[in-house]
Design a protein around this nucleic acid. Structure first.
Lengths: 220, 220
DNA sequence: AAGTGTTTGAAACGAATGTTTGAATCGTAC
DNA sequence: GTACGATTCAAACATTCGTTTCAAACACTT
């Protein structure tokens, strides 16, 4: 199934794919090793435990993305200095590295993108690992956004950043496997076109004026 | 733990809570029945299988929310007739019934809101059940949004609706358990204040002009 | 060719899972 | 009070899980 030469990489590729298809807890080591053409004991030989395998599956993908995000943000801030980069470019630097992951050379990342959609559900350890990797990125980008929107209260910017992450996550999941459910009239569009729609939505949301509730809105 | 009088409701309440805490697949029937003060066999007596229990846990909460959404949308369209309701009110009718669920009388819904965050990960059957319940709501609201934004291409509106669902889901998850990870300076705010921030973001995103990519944007 | 450290192989272990069974208990109508 | 359906109970069932074990096969240096 996987074309990797050594057993360890084949196990990582296969585990990533099966985790995305079936779920992490629901995927047994026997299924992984069978699909990868390896022996059951190979996982414990190469990784020590299932838990470590899971962590390595995630770390392998998440690290490069966040590094690329921070690299682009550095570049933007250097180019704009002493001014702040524009909101548009900040958001681009945050969004593009994730959603264009499948363009990088090292294998097909789409299984992992589906897997990311599952991440909020499974074991606490995975969440902690992901958030620890994400924390620096989140801090840096939130600060940049707050500088780009100086009129917006900081607490408001903080929440809008969360909403942005949510919309982005939904895009990942959506493009990976949910085409058919929320109206399938959308043909398989290339990711570039989807990113442009997402960018418009995010910029509009980030720059939106504060909200005033409708006067006659119905309460539950 | 649960104050329900009969065993069946106690099992539903306890299962919901444990599913949200630990995950669906990871929660064993023995844990549920022990926590609920019931016998292990009670689940198979009342529900027939774990799968059916899961479905009933979801159906019990999802149905009323979507019904309330559609009721509010009906009300809006009737009041605005022959014109279309405003975008603002449509989004309010979509958002408020979910995020104000815990105000309804029948028990504490917060465990279920955390559970919703897990739903993209677990068994295919749950997804199908949820999407079948959600399909009518999604169709109706998407149509209303497209009428309220006649200048926006339909494909664009369809994607923005997905982004909206994503941002809303992130809010549910975020408020339920992720306060500490994405910057914990936000004190436990009441849901009403969060909804107002979300509404501003969503309306801004929905009404945003089409996007033009930055000329010098960095490619990966 | 022998020896050594690395990797793979088949088999078993103990624990946990969903499910089934059949008897005991409860509530209620006659 | 007795009979009967609904519910609960303790115990066992067959599977599956992650993990361990130890010998066989391999790669590579001397």
């Amino acid at each position: 199934m996987s074309d990797a030469t050594n057993t360890k990489d084949r196990l990582l590729d296969t585990a990533e794919q099966l985790f995305a298809q079936t779920g992490i807890e629901a995927t047994s080591l026997r299924t992984i090793t069978a699909e990868a053409g390896a022996n059951l004991a190979a996982i414990h030989y190469h990784f020590g435990s299932k838990e470590t395998l899971i962590q390595e599956v995630f770390a392998r993908r998440v690290e490069p993305v966040n590094q690329e995000r921070l690299r682009q943000l550095d570049e933007l801030e250097a180019a704009a200095y002493p001014n702040a980069p524009s909101l548009k470019k900040i958001i681009e630097a945050f969004i593009y590295p994730v959603l264009l992951m499948n363009k990088v050379s090292d294998g097909d990342c789409r299984p992992f993108m589906r897997l990311l959609g599952r991440v909020y559900s499974e074991s606490e350890n995975i969440q902690k690992l992901l958030f620890s990797q994400f924390k620096e990125t989140a801090t840096r980008f939130l600060a940049a956004i707050q500088k780009a929107l100086p009129h917006l209260p900081k607490i408001e910017a903080s929440w809008r950043f969360k909403f942005m992450v949510g919309a982005m996550a939904m895009t990942v999941v959506s493009h990976a496997g949910f085409e058919e459910q929320l109206g399938s009239e959308n043909e398989m569009q290339d990711m570039e076109a989807i990113i442009e729609k997402l960018m418009a939505f995010l910029i509009g949301g980030m720059q939106a004026p504060l909200y005033q509730k409708s006067e006659g809105s119905t309460k539950l």
